[in-house]
Structure formats: structure tokens, C-alpha cells
Design a protein around this nucleic acid. Structure first.
Lengths: 207, 207
DNA sequence: GTCTATACGTTGATAGAC
DNA sequence: GTCTATCAACGTATAGAC
């Protein structure tokens, strides 16, 4: 019996976290209400409070899940030594994240825009450490003249901004795309454009 | 006497709009309270309601001001026929906007991320028209082989995302920049990096 | 035009029956 | 573990004195 109860808990917590991510993404932290989240999750409001004591705590848990996924996507950068492959796969992985997890990206953007008071610590520690190591790699590519000399920090900022733009500004892109969201093909084309722009800019373009 | 009253109105409205922009940027629409705005403006809360009947109306006015400024910044693109100069100046102008008006950029990002329910109409009309005309210009550059063939839409999306990133993700960049905001010099360097990345990617790089 | 006091709605959180 | 009823806090908006 105990096992079954634990399973109920796991299932419900997962349901709630997923629902919360959607609502936080659409309305921001303040704009999201426990009532909206409960309806999105298909559970009574009181149950949300039963599983997550407070709204702030639920928000933190949602962010933690996003951080984990980000770190996993980040690992792709280390899969290959060859700059062209590493950069291509990293961009494609980030674009895929924007495509499949737009809500996660928006929650993140919201959190950072409003001061990063919850994820600030993570940025200062784990994230900064990750970035510094990758910057070393990029600088080695520059030293061995595999790519053009660039500011490695700016290089990453630009990849992040371009790829996340497709999630965070989804609605704007949809409107400019004659009112309909990108098809799979259109999105793949946009991905190719980002890859091409970045590769060309560091001297790894096609011809 | 009537003139003086009108001046009082103008001055106070300006004060309130400016304050509201800051608060909306920092807390989002829901998170912003009339109380916070009034304190930021240095006026009693009731006066905010006297000048702007509702919070929604104030929000709309704040967004309208931002739209106006955007269109002005957009004009820079038409100042020169030569692609290298036009692109460079457009990027620099957008970066300057991010630098001097980060709150405006954040309010915009927030609005679009949460569904663009207020600025949607503007995007569908004025903005889309502006973009289509500029895309024609870029495609002419491609046809006359002045720049590499690229997807003109994606080209603009990338410029917007990279430049706005410096406003919207200010806090993240600050943390990664050893905890302090970009100095004037550092920001100018980032601007140069963006310009260089874009120019190089379309075949207008230095050498 | 300014400001205090307040009405009214919404929302986060809990109590307590099942 | 589920759910209804309810409370307390907060926030928008207004009334009405100055």
C-alpha cells in the first residue's frame, strides 16, 4: 500500500509541476494563480497546497527542473572536439529546446528579467563555472586558428539570445509569419540559418 | 492659469509613465502595483488613478511610448543604401536602445512573452509592413550580390534577439561579468562583436 | 488638482469533514 | 490522500473632504 501512495504522490507532483510551468510562463510569477495552476493540472486547488506548501516553493521546483534540463542540453557542446561539429550540435540542441520546451524558456526569461532572485545563485556558481570552461575551449580554437578571433563570451551570449528568441518571442514570430506558428520545416530552416550565420561568422562557413 | 494646469498635467503624466515603465519592467503587469508605481513617481496613489483611470490604461500608454521609440530607432536602417553602413548603424542603434532604455525593452519582452494581447495589432500592421519593406531591401542586396544569400526574415530576428538580449538578460550578463554591469567600454566592445558577427556572416567582414 | 479613508474583489493559504 | 468552506491579506478603484 505504501508503494501505491508514493506513486500517487509522484504522479500528482509531476502533473502539478508541468501545469505550473505552463501557467508561470504565460502569466509570470505574480500573474499565475494557484487556481489557474490547479485547473491546468486537473486537481482541486487545495491539493496543490498539499503537495507544495507555498506558491514560491512550487516556483522554485519548476525552476530547478528547468536548470537540470539546461545542463543536459549544455553537455552536447562537449560531444566533439571539432569546432564545426560542436557548435552546430550545440545550436541545434538549443533550438530543439526552444521548440519542444517553450514554456521552460519563458519561465527562465521571466525569472532573469525580474532580477534572477531565485536562480541568481545557480548563475554565479554552476553556470559560471560551466561557461568559463567552454570559453577556454573556444579560445583554444582561436589560438590554433581553427576559428576567427572573437570574444568568446559574446559568442555564447549570441548563441543563447538567438536560439532562445524562438521560444520567448514565439508569439511575435508567429504574427510576422503571416499569423501561423512555424511548421516543422520552417523551424528547421530557421535552425539552419542560425547555424549558418554563426559558422560563417567564425570562418567555418560552407565553402 | 489654464496653461499652468495643463503643464502640471503634462509633467505629472510624464513622471507617472516613466515610473510605470520601471515598475512594469521589474515586476510584470500583474506584479506591478499602483502603490509601487506611485512611490516610484513620488506621488500619492490616488493621483495615479486621477491621471490614468485604470492600471490597464496606464500600461497601454507605456507601451505606446515604447512603440514610438522603436519606430524611430528603426528609421536608422534607411539612412544609407550601402549595406555595410545600414546594417552597422542599425545594430548600433538597437544596442544603444538596450543600453539606455533597458526597462522599455523588458516591458516589451514581457508583453510579447505573455501573448502580445496589447501590441498584437501593432505587430500585425505597422510593424509587419515595416519589416516587409526592409526585407525587400535585403533581398535586393542579395540579388545584386552585395551580401551572401540569407533568409532575410531570420536575419532580422537574429539582430533583434542579439541586441535586445543585452537589455532583457542584463542581470544574467552582469552575474557572468564577475558580478558587475558592463562598463561603457565593455558594452562598446560587445556592440562591436555583434556588428562584426553579423557583417562577417553576410560577407561584409573586415578584410 | 491633491490626498485620506474605504469599499470591494481577488488570491494565497488553512481548517476540518470525508 | 481528497476536497469544500472559509479566512486574512492585499490590491484596484473610488468617494469625498480639502
Amino acid at each position: 500500500m505504501k508503494v501505491q501512495k508514493e506513486m500517487v504522490r509522484e504522479i500528482n507532483e509531476a502533473k502539478i509541476i508541468e501545469a505550473a510551468e505552463i501557467i508561470f510562463a504565460q502569466f509570470g510569477f505574480k500573474g499565475a494563480t494557484m487556481d489557474k495552476i490547479s485547473k491546468q493540472a486537473g486537481l482541486p486547488k487545495a491539493n496543490i497546497h498539499y503537495y507544495f506548501k507555498t506558491k514560491s516553493l512550487l516556483y522554485q521546483v519548476v525552476l530547478e527542473r528547468i536548470l537540470q534540463e539546461w545542463m543536459i542540453a549544455a553537455q552536447v557542446f562537449d560531444n566533439h572536439q571539432e569546432p564545426k561539429i560542436a557548435i552546430t550540435q550545440y545550436i541545434e540542441s538549443k533550438m530543439q529546446f526552444s521548440r519542444t520546451r517553450p514554456y521552460a524558456s519563458k519561465v527562465w526569461a521571466n525569472e532573469v528579467m525580474h532580477g534572477a532572485s531565485v536562480v541568481g545563485k545557480f548563475l554565479e556558481t554552476t553556470f559560471k563555472t560551466w561557461l568559463e570552461a567552454r570559453i577556454k575551449v573556444v579560445n583554444e580554437w582561436i589560438d590554433s586558428e581553427k576559428i576567427y578571433p572573437i570574444d568568446a563570451n559574446a559568442f555564447f551570449y549570441m548563441i543563447w539570445s538567438m536560439t532562445q528568441h524562438y521560444a520567448d518571442f514565439e508569439k511575435q514570430l508567429e504574427i510576422l509569419n503571416d499569423g501561423h506558428p512555424f511548421t516543422e520545416q520552417e523551424f528547421n530552416n530557421q535552425t539552419a540559418q542560425v547555424v549558418n550565420l554563426v559558422l560563417t561568422s567564425v570562418g567555418l562557413g560552407k565553402k
